[in-house]
């Protein structure tokens, strides 16, 4: 493979960052964050996922097409959730 080989040290650094984020998110669940509880937890989850994808899955210097595949998956997931919830969230706006 033509891609540059990452040093094993960088993998360990990534791993410790992931561990740290895990402890943070579990720690935060014992605090009273109110309606920010879930958004913050999901934000941390997204950052961890991004780190895994960029470094462990080599998306950082991956082919454009890998990004395209991932992007389509996310876009379609977005369509599925948005339009389904568009029904659930607005169903009670008008009562018959």
């Amino acid at each position: 493979m033509a891609e540059t080989l990452a040093s094993s040290r960088s993998y360990y650094l990534v791993f410790f960052a992931l561990l740290a984020l895990t402890f943070v998110t579990i720690g935060l669940t014992f605090l009273h964050l109110g309606r920010w509880h879930t958004p913050i937890a999901l934000l941390i989850a997204f950052s961890k996922a991004l780190i895994v994808a960029l470094f462990f899955m080599h998306l950082r210097h991956g082919n454009r097409l890998y990004w395209l595949a991932l992007g389509s998956g996310l876009l379609w997931l977005g369509i599925l959730m948005t339009l389904t919830l568009s029904d659930f969230l607005t169903r009670d706006w008008l009562s018959y």
Partner: peptide, 22 residues
């Protein structure tokens, strides 16, 4: 083609607003 599926559910009790969009 992925944005239109709600038109199968117009009379099923789907939200009127969602139905408009679909």
């Amino acid at each position: 083609g992925f944005l239109v599926w709600g038109h199968h559910m117009f009379v099923a009790g789907e939200s009127v607003y969602a139905a408009l969009v679909f």
